[in-house]
Amino acid sequence: MASVTPALVAEIREKRYQRSRGAHAHVALEGLSLRIEPREIVALVGPSGCGKTTFLNIVAGLDREFNGEVRLAPRADGAPARVGYVFQEPRLLPWRTVYENLALVLPPQRAEPIVTDMLKAVGLAEARELYPAQLSVGMSRRVAIARAFAIEPDLLLMDEPFVSLDHDTVEQLRELLLGLWQVRPTTVLFVTHDLREALMLADRLVLLSAPPAHVVGQVPVSLARERRHSGAEIELLRADVLRQHRELIGSAGAMSSSPRAEPAAVREGR
């Protein structure tokens, strides 16, 4: 593995938000460095408002006003890396159909078979001609995930992809995501403040501090994916992580030991 070029190398020396006159600038990120190997699934875990989304936007190239460097490994043919982004909200174009929402991120001459394929893969072949307003929340998320996979991304970014959904929907989406990833393996960087979710999906957890955010710990998850369905094993892992990283407790309500009976939406406070 040592000789493989990493899929992503990010060195953020500083990212600050200029406030209006008089007030001090808010430093969101400081000394944050991260390196991700190809096809690795990395979860970025940290308290709410610690700058996780800011970091994703920098990696996606949406925010260029920062001090530091982000390098994405180019594709095999030398073209720049493609980044698929699943935003916190689905962010589908409400005035375009499900089909068009996917087709618009693809080259026109190749769109049709890819979109058909992707819609089938996420179980939405029937919804092709619907407008986003006609979809349920879970369906919209599936379209957003399908859109991100459709471009065959070299790096898939996901910003709290399962936030404010009910427990069953989250479960289904997680299965769907892993299924898609197994057929179309790619490097994944996703953000969450739910430790349990991170442990169920990721190969490695990267723990962020409160702002100015930097990496305070890394946790490799070696538990086989098939065994992560069991709540008990995940609970054990979670307790372990919390024991070793006491700073995570209390910095975010979501990471304290709240009972699982509560619906995800309430627990995550969104």
Binding site: N57, L62, Y85, R91, V105
Partner: peptide, 16 residues
């Protein structure tokens, strides 16, 4: 702004 960000991150291009 969020739609523009989406278009940019998916490299939709100016005309689209």
């Amino acid at each position: 702004r969020s739609y523009a960000d989406m278009a940019q991150s998916f490299q939709m291009g100016r005309w689209r």
